[in-house]
Each structure stands twice: as structure tokens, then as C-alpha cells.
Amino acid sequence: MAYRFNLDGQPVALDIRHRVPRLGLAIDDVVADVTEVPAEGAAFELVVDGRVRRGWRCIVGQDIHVRLDGRSYVVRRTDLDFAEGGGGAAGNDIRSDMPGTTIALHVAVGDAVEEGQRLLTIESMKLQMTIAAHRAGRIAALHVEANATFERGAVLVSLAPAEGE
């Protein structure tokens, strides 16, 4: 089976091609030979195609944070998601990428909106941001009220399915 991940937001398919003599991982169909070397705590050590790679990793929520060669990466497993994604907009639902509070609603249910039109103003960590429509459509539901708090990944607005869907 293929495992799906996002590496810094880029989708990647990962598959186990063989387990002997070493683990063979196909990453977007390019196979890398991987051996795991025991390491303490959050540290990891792998030999990937003959090269030793030492770094750090931890899991927080849906994300696996990896530090390697002076750079940090966020990897998210996506094949376990039942929803359309952890954040942003896909299909009909517009989600929040972070927890916050709604400051203002700029549209009402039934409104026709253009792509890029601002729908909500939200605040997170003392910064105000605008949530805009990712496509043109009609507002099917507003899932939050003004001054409501919401968690990361919460659906904020649903658009009616596009014509022809």
C-alpha cells in the first residue's frame, strides 16, 4: 500500500518496496535503501543509500517534526485523514489552519462569492487575518459566529457544490 505524506506542504507518496536485505522505501517511485541505527530519545540515525543521516524528530498532533542538517521539516501523514485536509480549503469546506477567534463575518448564508473574496476576519496570536474564498460559489453554511473561538482544522465556511459537480 502507498502511504501518503506532505513534506513542507508538498504531497509525497511513500511505499515499502522490499524489507530485505534492507528496507527499501519508494518515494515517488525512487527507491532508497534505509537502515535504522538505534539512537537515544528524540535523536534518530539512519543510513540512507549508504549515507549516515543523524537528526532529531518528534510528533506533535498530526505532524512529525524532523531536524536534519541544520534545517527543520514538517511532515504530515495524509493517508489517515478522513477529512479533506488539516487546513486551508479543499472541495466545499474552508478550514482554519490554526486555532483562533472570529472577529467579523463578511458574508451571509446564500451569498454568492467570487474567488478571493473575503469571507471572515479571524484573529490568532494577536494577528488579524482574512479568510478568503478559494473559488467562486454560494455560501452554504457558516459554522462560526462572530467572537467564537475555534480549533485548528475546524470547518469555518462551507460553499455550495459548484455547478456541474
Binding site: 505524506f5 509525497v12 524489507r19 522505501l25 518515494i27 532508497a32 535504522e36
Partner: peptide, 25 residues
């Protein structure tokens, strides 16, 4: 990241997942 680094990062991430480890090892 270059391909080798991306592979190492993904392998490290995947191997942090218990279900993936079960299948791999």
C-alpha cells in the same frame, strides 16, 4: 531539499509511526 535529504526526512518521519514500523519491521 535534495532528493537524498527528502528521502531521509521522510524515512525518519515514517519510522516514527507505529503502524508503519509494524509493516516495515
Amino acid at each position: 531539499p535534495d532528493a537524498g535529504t527528502a528521502a531521509a526526512v521522510l524515512a525518519a518521519a515514517a519510522l516514527a509511526q507505529p503502524d508503519f514500523r509494524n509493516v516495515a519491521f
